[in-house]
Write a protein that binds this DNA or RNA. Sequence first.
DNA 1: CGTTGGGTTGAACCCACTCAATACGCGTGG
DNA 2: CCACGCGTATTGAGTGGGTTCAACCCAACG
Lengths: 261, 261
Amino acid sequence: MNAASHGLVSIPGLASRACPPTAELDPPPAPTRDLSATLQLLEQALPITRRLVRAGDTVYRAGQHFSQLHVVHSGLFKLVNLASDGREQVVALSFKGDWLGFDGIADGRHSCDAVALDVGEVWTIRYDDLLRRCIERPALMNVLHAAMSLELARDRDFQMSLCTLPADARVAEFLRHWVDALASRGLRTDQITLRMSRAEIGSYLGMTLESVSRALCRLAREAVICFPEKGRREIHIPDAAALGRFVQRSLGMDAGARVLQ
Amino acid sequence: MNAASHGLVSIPGLASRACPPTAELDPPPAPTRDLSATLQLLEQALPITRRLVRAGDTVYRAGQHFSQLHVVHSGLFKLVNLASDGREQVVALSFKGDWLGFDGIADGRHSCDAVALDVGEVWTIRYDDLLRRCIERPALMNVLHAAMSLELARDRDFQMSLCTLPADARVAEFLRHWVDALASRGLRTDQITLRMSRAEIGSYLGMTLESVSRALCRLAREAVICFPEKGRREIHIPDAAALGRFVQRSLGMDAGARVLQ
DNA sequence: CGTTGGGTTGAACCCACTCAATACGCGTGG
DNA sequence: CCACGCGTATTGAGTGGGTTCAACCCAACG
């Protein structure tokens, strides 16, 4: 939403948002421009446990004792928040390079489930190991803080989308973010495979699965997307910018309503 | 929502959520149970700039260069997220003990406005100072991480409220969180003074100001709250638990709809 | 006084939800 | 091979909660 993610899409390698804040400290924090550098940094500084997962595997569960963090090395993960009254919702998606587990630091237990949506690999590190290494290598601390900060900023951008966009635009934004996520990781963006059911997408976007279905059909009817295969989870996106235009158009209909002041 | 914030309210001093995660490290992290301890820790470890603010003052603005963090020492602040297309939304409220500015770490500029809603005081520290001290005093690092983690977890709980609760319940939840915030800081919880207009509340809760007004009237009609004074921003809350019951009741009407699976 | 900003209230509309029927893809087993 | 079941997706019809638009009230203030 802010900074890079809006406007023109797909300047590849703009994972730069996770880059050095205050630009100097004892060992000048390595310009962690891309995540491969971040992963290298972790790898050489810390004992890492690699774990392969398949769709449905959980990395951690709400309520579990927190002791380690995870970095997505491949695959796709959802975070499912649970309320004490039984409500649950998909509150975030994590792609390669994203961290999992920050929610557990505050009170020593996780408050979400982290579930794999596809085969993938996570790199797991002990939190106390990480803290120790952070002290020795401030660059590591920068990476960690940047990751948490980025997550915070993204959550808020997303929250704004939830509140200010009508259902169709919300789905378009959702796809746009997905495409952005792929683009910033250097992957192809003309084609995405949703690893989620309509119900999961609906949960994430705060709408029913029927509304998701209708929104996708409408997007297809307007040729913003199309379904190439027989499976309805494959989505072809001829022009990523068209998604953004669609969002703006549907805001325009409301005459810019919903902005405060 | 998770952990302490749900269920029975007002065990005073349960700012404990911001407490030690991995419970040992070189200097065993001081049991930062309450925020006064946190504030002390900051005060003795770092050069701090105190700043008094009045309603409407901004602590920082979206787009500004990030170099410092702030801790709310008194007063109330809103974070306003701005999209490049002009949309804006109140995305968070900050009470005493909360931090301001995390959103700027990732890319070196802030992505929100932080605006005072009342007279208050913020303690400002340079981020690079903080990093340096974190290296010397791991307890500080714990406090910092816990604060960021807590913010993340709260945002997600709130996001779930936005998506799963009908308008009336959203307002009730909003008040409940406010009361919780006061309770956990040892303040009186039977009376709260909204420092926000209906429009601001609506922005925060993803609804129109008219809906906020109607919801408050309905809550008053059901005697969950009442307006003592002539000013409509003073709200008396005879029984804090009644707010929670109201929320649960309105979920029940939907027959538990909206939960996934 | 008139003006201005915030809050309340009413009436009409509409988007998204609910409920229900139908269709599709896929694995299983007769 | 088809039959069957099951999970998932699509589509339609009807409803309702929340929005929109409007009028109105009230307090503060010049």
